[in-house]
Design a protein around this nucleic acid. Structure first.
Lengths: 224, 224
DNA sequence: ACCTGAACACCGTTCAAGT
DNA sequence: ACCTGAACACCGTTCAAGT
């Protein structure tokens, strides 16, 4: 019952021999697990700190703020993407990069929005971009030709993955394909009504394949 | 100095003859101007209420909550898109729809993220989709063929507009083209370094034209 | 060097009480 | 029918005080 000088409830300043030493990396890890668990929209500095058994304000010794932290998460995930080796077949090489990017992004579905939405400028984050430029160069495109093509590829990839994410965090079909089909059928829009069954269903893998192949077609058209 | 029964500071309940009668539409308008002024990330129920000279909690009589409100803003903007008449030229018709969509989205740049990011299911919001399906039908595509093509077009459009928005809210080039070019040049990634000058520059209109044309090429390839 | 107490200026939302 | 007071359970962040 005696209150000693190490009484935790009265402590202030650095803990005498606190268990986990706080670090930028530890904070980043905790943030990622918080995002995976609760979703990115619910994540908070205070919540991350709680995971680490620390006060929220302590985080500011290692991180500029919440925005900086979320940028770091995006960069971390992007750094996770393993760029495939080139085969010399332009179509297959572009496909492989797209699939690698998708795999990296979907490894943390709740964090994927960050990757797709935030501007990343670190070298690690730029590796996929570099890889695309390399493939286009090997295919014989000049930089003048490559950059717009790169932008189209990135835009399509981004858009496709965003759709995929909001189409349903769960695998395959989300809740209510029948409901969606019914809503479309009765929308009063004839072409949507006619295509309702096909629109209501969504095969993530197949849609990704189709879109990425089609957009690569658009690239290869410009090939001499 | 006398405190009467109409003393405002002690009032409770509906104002005797308050100026503006609150309505869903008025709330929506106020929200849109708040977004245009402050940016979507800063908008709050309390802020919107202040614009209307009302307490934040009053909004809940006309709106389900913040999420519902932002959905409504997205729908409103989408309902603003004027679908162009068909000309019979598939390429031109698809281009025209894309441009109409872009114009609608960019009319409120700070709100555009909502339009591109949220799932919209109201008939008004689905009009552009219906228009694309109609053009593809007129071009001779079956619904089975049209739906994946529609998805590719939407994905590319979404991705392109998102990039355009984050590339710079200001018109044309944002701050620091030279800085970005320098960063890319010294990134240690050779292909990025070589294309640095082209990547650092970004002509919104030209990039949009290129991408949309290229992706329509991918559609028309599949034309018999 | 690093952590926290106290503090500031905010959030979204519920619900009963008022008119 | 519609608005608000009181209240709840949160936010991100600063800064001086502590070790």
């Amino acid at each position: 019952m005696a209150v000693t000088s190490t009484d935790r409830s009265a402590r202030r300043g650095r803990p005498p021999k606190g268990a986990a030493q706080l670090s930028r990396e530890a904070i980043l890890d905790a943030t990622l697990t918080a995002i995976d668990t609760l979703g990115v929209s619910v994540v908070s500095m205070r919540g991350v700190a709680k995971i680490l058994g620390v006060d929220a304000k302590s985080l500011y010794n290692h991180v500029e703020g919440k925005d900086d932290l979320l940028d770091a998460v995006a960069e971390h995930i992007l750094g996770t993407v393993v760029i495939p080796c080139r085969t010399g077949n332009t179509r297959e090489d572009l496909r492989a990069i797209a699939h690698a990017f998708r795999a990296g992004a979907l490894a943390h579905p709740e964090a994927a929005t960050l990757v797709l939405t935030r501007q990343v400028s670190s070298p690690a984050g730029l590796a996929p971009t570099e890889a695309v430029l390399q493939v286009l160069d090997a295919a014989g495109f000049s930089p003048d030709e490559s950059v717009p093509l790169l932008r189209m590829l990135v835009a399509t990839l981004t858009g496709t993955l965003l759709r995929e994410l909001q189409a349903g965090p769960a695998f395959g079909v989300g809740a209510g394909i029948a409901e969606r089909e019914a809503a479309l059928t009765t929308s009063g829009l004839p072409f949507l009504a006619r295509a309702a069954a096909r629109i209501a269903r969504f095969d993530r893998q197949a849609e990704f394949e189709f879109t990425i192949n089609a957009v690569i077609d658009a690239v290869l058209i410009r090939h001499r």
